[in-house]
């Protein structure tokens, strides 16, 4: 464990807490893409298959449980909760995310560390996570205005993987046999996808104005 990775995990946790706060406090999920939430639930379920077989540390196990439980809770809440579900932007959240699932799975079959069940699903979860934010970014683009909590949620979600890139650089230089190029390349793609969001987020923060994404 290094400071970059710990900062990344905490930033990721903050993004989840901000999302839960937004939904709980406003009893609304407007501006939140259910498809992105479903993709994230799939990412965690397929990445942590070794949750009960490989014990790495208490921290590792607890964080995995928190990520799985929170992503499933948000999906259930957005689908079932009678008040929250009414505020879901169903007609804006139309990204065909099944293609993302299919593309990630095909790529995982072709490019993986080892052709085993667990490794293929691990690579699948890495590729899918890089693309999972797309429905959310498309929804924000279409809805134009971004409310503060939603903007902060997406910002922290993007920032966490940027910390992980620093973590991989650090581990590359400090651990002789460290080679995790699947996660590195995918993490880079993931962070680049946020680039324009970060730009408009910074502009709105600098001008202390409400965040506007160009239609």
């Amino acid at each position: 464990m290094n400071i970059f990775r710990f900062a990344g995990d905490m930033t990721h946790l903050i993004s989840i807490l901000v999302l839960l706060l937004k939904i709980y406090a406003t009893k609304s999920c407007s501006g939140i893409s259910l498809k992105t939430q479903e993709l994230y639930a799939l990412v965690f379920l397929t990445r942590y298959l070794d949750l009960f077989t490989d014990f790495i540390s208490v921290y590792n196990t607890i964080m995995k449980l928190v990520f799985i439980a929170s992503s499933l809770a948000v999906v259930c809440c957005m689908r079932m909760h009678r008040v929250v579900r009414r505020s879901y932007d169903k007609d804006l959240d139309t990204f065909r995310h099944y293609f993302l699932i299919l593309a990630s799975f095909v790529l995982a079959l072709l490019v993986n560390e080892k052709f085993t069940f667990q490794e293929i699903f691990w690579a699948f979860s890495i590729y899918l996570e890089a693309l999972a934010i797309l429905p959310q970014l498309v929804l924000l683009q279409r809805s134009g205005n971004v409310d503060n909590l939603t903007g902060q949620y997406v910002f922290f979600l993007g920032a966490y993987r940027a910390f992980y890139i620093l973590n991989w650089i650090y581990r590359y230089f400090t651990e002789q046999h460290f080679s995790r190029w699947i996660a590195c390349v995918s993490g880079l793609v993931q962070t680049v996808l946020y680039a324009d969001f970060f730009y408009y987020y910074f502009i709105s923060w600098k001008n202390n104005a409400k965040m506007q994404l160009p239609a």
């Binding site: 990775r5 490989d54 790495i56 964080m63 560390e113 691990w122 973590n167």
Partner: peptide
Amino acid sequence: PPEGSYHDEL
């Protein structure tokens, strides 16, 4: 597996 093993990251 110990820290630094293959999938020790979240």
